[in-house]
């Protein structure tokens, strides 16, 4: 009985150690997932948002992108917007917040991260759920990220058409 208790205790300690290790030293896939979740949080906004908070959010969002990037977003009306710098991202984010007017909740679900063999770049395929007060839109997006100066930054993002 004493041995069994000690074995169970050992298993619990090992499991706690493994869990702590993954929390303190997350793998690249988990880091990427956390960064994408943060991007979704920053892309969300409330109605009547403080302009300073909006500016801060837009600049933070742009900070998740590499200095040179390509973002191709197709609107539901099939109009495509292309952005190629952090400044363009920040400006268009601010313009979208002002034009939209209401509350928007963005959530990335079903994130599939594929790391390159050298673990210095990755592709993340995901589904973005965009919930406004009156509407729900879903859109598949493909993100390409690169590890630059120890940080995973978005180098490319494009919307994917579900049906061809």
């Amino acid at each position: 009985m004493k041995i069994l208790f000690r074995l169970i205790l050992l298993a619990v300690v090992v499991a706690a150690g493994v869990w702590l290790w993954t929390v303190l030293f997350p793998g690249p896939e988990n880091v990427i997932r956390h960064r994408l979740a943060e991007i979704a949080r920053l892309a969300s906004f409330n109605a009547n948002e403080n302009p300073l908070a909006a500016l801060g959010g837009a600049q933070k969002l742009a900070g998740f992108c590499s200095p040179t990037l390509q973002v191709k977003l197709a609107a539901p009306t099939n109009v495509e917007h292309t952005f190629e710098s952090r400044e363009e991202i920040a400006q268009s984010d601010l313009a979208a917040r002002a034009a939209f007017g209401g509350t928007l909740r963005v959530e990335f679900v079903d994130v599939v991260v594929t790391l390159a063999p050298d673990q210095q770049s990755a592709v993340a395929d995901l589904t973005a759920r965009m919930q406004s007060s009156s509407d729900l839109n879903v859109q598949e997006i493909k993100f390409t990220l690169k590890k630059i100066d120890g940080q995973w930054l978005v180098t490319r993002a494009e919307t994917i058409r579900t049906f061809s």
Binding site: V109, D110, V111, V112, D125, L126, T127, R129, V138, E140, T162
Partner: peptide, 11 residues
């Protein structure tokens, strides 16, 4: 029902 990138959102 049609899958997108995973099982949480389907068409």
């Amino acid at each position: 029902s049609i899958q997108l990138t995973g099982p949480h959102v389907l068409f």
